[in-house]
């Protein structure tokens, strides 16, 4: 018997302006340092675009922005921030402080409230007193100052892990640089096991008074 399959009217493919390109960010701040790390996998669906795309953007000698989500929005947003910082430098002959960058970023994100930058941001830096500071964002510009955070495709996996280790720290038991770095590495190795959008490598930046130290850790590549 012949079967007629009714496929209905031909459907036009709607244009989807967003893509989810994966990637995760972890950041921890301490007494005199801030550490921010991202993986280097850029992907879409089951396809890995590249295995060596860092999602960290150095904005000054004491602030680094971690950016994941829709990669095309990430590129635009970071370009705008970087040129704004340049204008600020030329106008005021001063490098913008992290707390000011934090507000700028929030304003930029909210300026696209009804067609958002689909980007999760984490801004890490050293504040005016030389202490580590960290700002966490949502895609439309909500900003919160935190001590540690995880964002991106594995944010939901890594945040509870960080909560369990750093959630009830007091000032007389601050997190050390060594401890923070090993927590970052552990968070990413765990995330790499369960999230296909996180993997390949971790790049981290440790922001300190005398400069930014970078490093790479290998992750699963499958």
């Amino acid at each position: 018997m012949d079967t007629i399959i009714d496929r209905g009217a031909p459907k036009a493919r709607n244009f989807e302006p967003y893509a989810s390109n994966g990637g995760s960010i972890v950041a921890i701040s301490g007494k005199d340092f801030a550490i921010v790390a991202s993986d280097t996998r850029l992907s879409e669906g089951y396809m890995i675009y590249t295995r060596k795309q860092s999602k960290l953007f150095q904005l000054s000698d004491k602030s680094v922005l971690g950016c994941t989500g829709c990669w095309c929005d990430t590129l635009s947003l970071t370009n705008i921030i970087q040129s704004q910082l340049k204008s600020y430098l030329y106008d005021h002959n001063t490098v913008m402080q992290p707390n000011s960058i934090a507000q700028l970023l929030s304003t930029l994100l909210y300026s696209r409230r009804f067609f958002p930058y689909y980007v999760y941001n984490v801004l890490a830096g050293l504040d005016n007193n030389g202490e580590g500071c960290l700002y966490s964002y949502d895609p439309v510009g909500h900003c919160e100052k935190v001590n540690y955070t995880a964002g991106g495709s594995s944010g939901v996996l890594m945040q509870p892990f960080l909560d369990s280790w750093l959630g009830n720290r007091t000032t007389d038991n601050p997190v050390t640089e060594e401890e923070a770095l090993s927590l970052v590495k552990d968070a990413f190795t765990a995330a790499g096991e369960r999230d296909i959008y996180t993997g390949d490598e971790v790049v981290y930046n440790i922001i300190k008074k005398d400069g930014i130290q970078t490093g790479v850790v290998q992750l699963r590549k499958d």
């Binding site: 893509a19 390109n21 590249t50 060596k52 990669w71």
Partner: peptide, 11 residues
């Protein structure tokens, strides 16, 4: 087509 840009040794 979205403006997603990246660099690699094989694409």
């Amino acid at each position: 087509k979205l403006g997603t840009a990246f660099v690699d040794d094989q694409i």
